[in-house]
Amino acid sequence: MKILKNLRKLGFGLLLVTTVVGASGEVPMPEIPKAKQNFSAEQSCIEPTDIMRRQHGTFLKHYRNDTTRRGIRAIQYNLVACINCHVTADESGNYPNVHKGSEHFCRSCHSYAAVNVDCFQCHTSQPQESFSSDMGPVQSD
């Protein structure tokens, strides 16, 4: 039963490795910047956080299709509103760059999971002054 003996050796080895490595504990996690305000007292974003984490891409894509193909603007998922609430300036008043690093709200997770953010090839990644803070859609022409 040579293989059993080897197995036992390997088990001890693994135990040794885990006691050394296992102590370190921390794993890298994205550092997500805090949003400016909560959506309501019970809910932090426009949908429960669980759903936002899984479905935000789908929401934005539907919004894009509705807007560009069918001309519908006044709907609940609005990229400009996301940016206005979620992208915050640092102490010197500068907004983080969405194309590099991981400080920008979108980039913090998208870098972690290597997912492209295509939105900002056209859209702005920084809050707009003229935008009202009630999370409603922009009503320009």
Partner: peptide, 18 residues
Amino acid sequence: HTDIIQFKAFMLSVLNFN
């Protein structure tokens, strides 16, 4: 979809023998 950020965190913690 699933929460891939949380899943990656899980996987890294498994690889890290936590």
